[in-house]
């Protein structure tokens, strides 16, 4: 967690964006909050993207980062629709396969062989879902890909539109599924070593499959008008000069 925060802070500094709001649906430690130079919101689970939509639309100057845990359960719909409208939000999806705070219950991103009592449902391929929802920037890194992750977040911040970065982060109670691992940092390393960078890979192929390498990299980038661009364009077209663009 602290690694991601560090990358985030560095990225925000690097991108030189002033008005940043971080919305998440999980608890921050007080120390982390104190170390951040921008506003932080901890809202109801699954709703950071919707909350961020409100922030962004009410004040388009803001740059909103939505930091979400294993998403697609609560709030999966917000994810899809924010992508569809190309809402100007950077989504950092922290994928640790489980809900660490509540004793390691399984999530829709849980992988079969990583769990003792293996769920049999097929997990979600987050980058592919992001791309098909209409995201303008899709990437995946593990937490040990420090510089790449920071670079990715910076790029996403500088881009306007719905950007999704999936971060493979270890869940504290999770390495139990892989007998050779003793602690969390070994899991970090396990992910790192078992990943392979394939920039520009088709998101259809990046599903996380047991025993295969985790494919990381910057998968996809495109330009699309954001929600506000389309809104202003549409109303200007219909109403002509009478309409003052909303900015």
């Amino acid at each position: 967690m602290s690694i991601i925060t560090t990358c985030l802070t560095n990225a925000v500094k690097k991108s030189r964006i002033k008005k940043v709001c971080l919305v998440s649906d999980f608890l921050y430690q007080r120390e982390i909050v104190d170390s951040l130079e921008f506003d932080t919101f901890h809202v109801t689970r699954g709703r950071p993207i919707a909350f961020g939509t409100g922030l962004k639309l009410a004040n388009p100057e803001l740059k909103v980062i939505a930091l979400i845990g294993d998403l697609i359960t609560l709030g999966g719909n917000h994810f899809m629709h924010a992508g569809r409208r190309n809402m100007d939000i950077v989504v950092i999806c922290v994928n640790n396969f489980i809900y660490p705070k509540i004793a390691g219950n399984t999530t829709p991103t849980t992988k079969v062989p990583f769990s003792q009592y293996a769920p049999f449902e097929r997990p979600i391929n987050v980058p592919h879902m992001a791309k098909s929802s209409g995201a303008v920037y899709v990437a995946r890194w593990t937490t040990l890909h420090n510089s790449e992750l920071t670079e990715s977040i910076t790029q996403a911040l500088q881009k306007s539109g719905f950007s999704v970065i999936e971060v493979m982060a270890p869940g504290g109670s999770y390495f139990a599924g892989i007998p050779s691992l003793k602690n969390e940092s070994e899991l970090l390393k396990f992910y790192y070593e078992n990943s392979v960078i394939k920039n520009g890979e088709d998101t259809r192929n990046v599903e996380i499959i047991p025993d295969n390498k985790i494919i990381v990299g910057k998968f996809f980038e495109q330009e699309r008008p954001t929600f506000l661009d389309s809104y202003n364009a549409q109303l200007s077209r219909v109403m002509g000069d009478k309409f003052k663009p909303y900015v």
């Binding site: 962004k56 629709h81 929600f227 909303y246």
Partner: peptide, 30 residues
């Protein structure tokens, strides 16, 4: 547009109300 406001049809009511709280904290009456 006449009053300089913005409205959005969200994907559901959960999203609507979350966005309203967000907008309120961004300084707008919502």
């Amino acid at each position: 547009h006449q009053v300089g406001a913005i409205s959005i049809q969200m994907e559901d009511e959960l999203g609507s109300i979350a966005s309203v709280i967000g907008a309120s904290w961004a300084g707008k009456k919502a």
